[in-house]
Write a protein that binds this DNA or RNA. Sequence first.
DNA 1: CCTATTTAATAAGCTAAGGTTATTATATGC
DNA 2: GCATATAATAACCTTAGCTTATTAAATAGG
Lengths: 142, 142
Amino acid sequence: MSEQHDNLAFLIADTNRLIRQFFQQRLRCGPLTLAQARALFYVSRFEGVKQVELADALEIQPMTMARLLDQLSDQQLIERVQDPNDRRAYQIFLTAAAAPHLEEIERVSALMREQMRNTLGAEQVNHFMTTLMRLRDGLLDD
Amino acid sequence: MSEQHDNLAFLIADTNRLIRQFFQQRLRCGPLTLAQARALFYVSRFEGVKQVELADALEIQPMTMARLLDQLSDQQLIERVQDPNDRRAYQIFLTAAAAPHLEEIERVSALMREQMRNTLGAEQVNHFMTTLMRLRDGLLDD
DNA sequence: CCTATTTAATAAGCTAAGGTTATTATATGC
DNA sequence: GCATATAATAACCTTAGCTTATTAAATAGG
């Protein structure tokens, strides 16, 4: 009875829901939502940059970023430090407590890749990811 | 600066957001959310079945289905008819007003496929969709 | 046949992940 | 030195789900 076999929108929405569940079920080390995990991951890659730059990198609104950082800050995983060159801005840094969470994110990402390899076969994984990225980028400019 | 190049979860979440925007921007004929559109589409394919069966087909909870049908019913796109064999249940039918909405959904779906063909090339589209479906189904049984 | 369990729908309220608009304070360009 | 732009964020909205509990009806077992 599995239908709608040609609608990308429905299929992606579905997959999104399932992947979120996959992640949240496997993330030990306290409750991080997928969005929070993603934000934390980016902070680790771009440590010290301003919120607005992080928002830009994640392609979300500055307000959305501010809220995610609030949540991470509540859990003492990041710190806002006054930007010495701009008193309006903060630089975002990881705290020591972030390390195990980042490892956990890495672990679950690896699980996800393993799941993909099992389902699709190793050679198809990279190809699929590349294709998906192209698709996303194609949608980015309306 | 586009990073996280190997995290499916983040990539899917992103793509999901962009596709939802794509859909909502292009759906004329009144405001239907993607979830409502999807529900309406399924009703059209399985007209007359009970809510619980629809929920099952969409792989969402019966409560989630009930609310979607409320919304569609508010817009007079579907009707609940007492199931003659089960007084607890309703059979769901389209109204006449649904037809243009379904055409609109079809039109935007076609636009989406066209966008995919432009981005990926025609031969890759089917392959991609098949792969994505396999991935989803792989996630379905935890 | 009648009680126990299951099932269909849904009310109430929660969560996750965003978005918009408006405000405040600070930078910066002309 | 003023007008404009920018960084963060408060307040509130939207989309898309979920869980738990309730009511009414169906069905299974003794």
